[in-house]
Write a protein that binds this DNA or RNA. Structure first.
Lengths: 134, 134, 134, 134
DNA sequence: GTGGTCTAGACCACC
DNA sequence: GTGGTCTAGACCACG
């Protein structure tokens, strides 16, 4: 599977898993009806405890992104794509807003903030262009 | 004092306190030699556990932002302003980078990200212009 | 056949099958000596794993509701009707008791519970009267 | 605390805990702002693993019934009472409807169902009146 | 094979 | 003291 987990990220592992699967659904990489990897399989692949994967899947089920198909595994729900797209945008907007708000509150001027954003974005895109092109 | 603490922020309370004091120093709101509030006073004002304030002050002392002035309290160190400005930039850059990195990893295109940033920034500045200009 | 299976029902599929067949026997829709569908046939019809149907039939055989007729298939036993009627009453009483017990434990007053029951029953009967009268 | 857990209930222990706390909130036994027992304390009291309690609390938090107060524990949220009352009614109505629907589908006549309900309810109330009067 | 639940015990940050 | 996360390993029902 296509997940990249960083255990020392601050963000909980189960959350990283859930989020990236939601992103995959939003992106169309996972379509309605597709089975996601089994708990044990993904746990093995990420070298993570099955409970951790299970918790991520629980979260996804709770949000209506996947449903369990008895005996088969867990499959992406019908209306999940739209839900994930909406949520993705809201989530990212929130995070950005929080970061920008702190910059403002810290006394940075708008042009300073803009240059900071531009700089970070450029760096990230360069890095991604080089090695991270999955 | 001029601090705004949100206990349900994700960010630890002690960290919010320390950070906002550093921002004040970076901004010149607190100048070298100025006394910061006593632990007990600030704790009462923020309705926060004194231990929490204490930990924030410990952090500030460790970083050389403030120093104990026997018999008086704690005062902003000489030279702290430059240090705080540098660190402020680094802190904010980190937060911004994290948010932008997630947007990239979520599959958003650079132009989508830029428009998201611009939108959020505009909203924040408008709000701040009106009432929130503390 | 006349079975309606809901795989996401909480109740196990094999149990739904076994129960509905017993209900049919209790009701007289299946009489002593009648052949029930073959495992493979019913499995195909319900788009369910043959093992699942098999398990349901095993349960029915174990309870003495059906018996294997060599060379023919499985037939409803003599005397099964009475047994099924008794068991049907017990099964349904159990389910009702569980639901009512939870209502009591949730702090609802007896009259509140009664009105809830009456309301649900009325709705169900109206719906069944219209289209769902299979 | 006032919880009664039956580990052999079919219903998951964590679910029993979460439900009964929600019922307590709906009933007013727990008011907004009240701290619920700590994970470890309740685990000890119910002789259950702390993880199980934790999972129940996670569920409650997710539903907006409680929120964590850093360093203090978990407290009932402001609007929780109404939410819990609404949900309690919906939940119980669902369970009743399901039980009644099965009775109808099993071929019972409305008057048979009514007598079944009345009988079970009477038994339950008598039992509760005798020993279960917590 | 699948998911779901539970136990036991550990480590962490925060207050 | 508090909650949050993770690991490890077990048992269960279901298909």
């Amino acid at each position: 599977m296509f997940l990249q987990i960083d255990p020392a990220n601050g963000v909980a592992v189960y959350d990283q898993i859930a989020r990236q699967i939601k992103y995959a659904v939003a992106d169309g990489a996972l379509a309605a009806g597709d089975l996601i990897p089994s708990v044990r399989e993904l746990a093995r692949e990420l070298t993570v405890n099955p409970n951790t994967v299970s918790r991520a899947y629980l979260e996804l089920k709770r949000e209506g992104v996947v449903e369990t198909v008895p005996g088969a595994g867990m499959a992406v729900c019908a209306g999940a794509k739209r839900h994930c797209q909406t949520q993705r945008r809201a989530l990212l907007a929130d995070r950005l807003r929080a970061a920008l708000a702190e910059a403002i509150q810290a006394g940075l001027q708008p042009d300073q903030i803009e240059s900071l954003v531009a700089e970070q974005l450029k760096t990230l895109l360069r890095h991604q262009g080089k090695g991270d092109a999955r």
